[in-house]
Structures are given as structure tokens and as C-alpha cells.
């Protein structure tokens, strides 16, 4: 009995961080911005920098120049440079843009990173095959917060 209670308590504790995450469907956008951290905690800027350059994750540099990452080759120029992004946007606004920029810029070409659909002809990653069911968002809540933590350091 005592053992079972302890096991139960351990399970609750293990589940806590996940419970604090805001599921995609419950994210509240106010003028495109998201006020609260999606994880309930601050992100890790160094981890964010990795997400932003990883082709399978954020790959922000595919479309944006980040001068603070001079060792990352072939930075794209589809979107605006991210230099000084934190001078132009608040943390809440940056969070909203990373999660789903279409709330800030109507019709934006930028992919929505914290969204689960609906999509037209959703595929299974880059396989070209279809995907049945609900796709997980491109980035996890934690990864979004990590990216936001990096972006708020981009001041000129």
C-alpha cells in the first residue's frame, strides 16, 4: 500500500513538467503575441541556437540572416534579417511569431512551428508519403521556448 502510494506520487511528479506545457489547441494569441511561456519556464538560448540551424527542426537560417552566427554557411534571405529582432519585438511577440507567424503577418510564407494542422496533403516529414492522423508540431513547446530565449538576445 505504502509502496503504491509512493509510486503514484512519483508518477505525478514525473508528469508535472508535461502538464505545465500549453497544448497547441490552447495557445492564446493576442494580436499575434503569446504572453506566457509555453512550458511555464524560461528557455535555453544555447539549445535554441541549435534548433535554429538544424535542418530537421527550426532551420530558421534557411530563410533568415543571423549575423551572430557567422560560422553557419548559406543563410537565406527570404525573410527579414533576425539581427536586432529583440529591439523590434517583445518576447511575447517573438513567441507568437515563432509559434505561428500567420497570426502576426496574415498570409505569411513562414511555416507555423507550433501547430498541428489542418494541412493540405500533409506528409510524413520529407518522405513524400502521406501521414494519417494528427501531426505533432514541427517544434515542441520546449524548442519554441529555446528559440525565443535565443531571439531575445538579438539586440543591436
Amino acid at each position: 500500500m505504502k509502496q503504491q502510494m509512493m509510486l503514484g506520487a512519483a508518477l505525478v511528479l514525473a508528469a508535472l513538467p508535461a502538464m505545465a506545457e500549453t497544448p497547441v489547441a490552447e495557445v492564446k494569441y493576442v494580436d499575434g503575441a503569446i504572453a506566457e511561456s509555453l512550458t511555464g519556464a524560461p528557455g535555453d538560448a544555447a539549445a535554441g541556437a541549435k534548433v535554429m540551424t538544424n535542418r530537421g527542426q527550426g532551420n530558421c537560417v534557411a530563410c533568415h540572416v543571423i549575423s551572430a552566427m557567422p560560422d553557419v554557411p548559406f543563410q537565406g534571405n527570404i525573410g527579414p534579417t533576425l539581427d536586432g529582432a529583440a529591439d523590434r519585438w517583445t518576447e511575447a511577440e517573438l513567441r507568437g511569431i515563432v509559434a505561428d507567424a500567420k497570426h502576426t503577418f496574415e498570409g505569411s510564407m513562414m511555416p507555423s512551428f507550433y501547430k498541428t494542422g489542418p494541412y493540405i496533403r500533409q506528409g510524413d516529414g520529407y518522405t513524400g508519403k502521406g501521414f494519417e492522423g494528427t501531426l505533432p508540431p514541427i517544434l515542441t513547446a520546449e524548442q519554441v521556448e529555446d528559440v525565443v530565449a535565443y531571439l531575445v538576445t538579438l539586440k543591436e
Partner: peptide
């Protein structure tokens, strides 16, 4: 999942770089 049309890249952004 990236919600991109042909036009996003080849009409609105020809001349620009993706990576």
C-alpha cells in the same frame, strides 16, 4: 506541414535564397 505553394518560392521569391 510547411504550407508552401509553388508561388511562395517561384513567384514571390525568385532571385532569393533558401539556404
Amino acid at each position: 506541414q510547411l504550407e508552401l505553394s509553388c508561388a511562395n518560392c517561384h513567384e514571390d521569391n525568385y532571385g532569393n535564397h533558401i539556404r
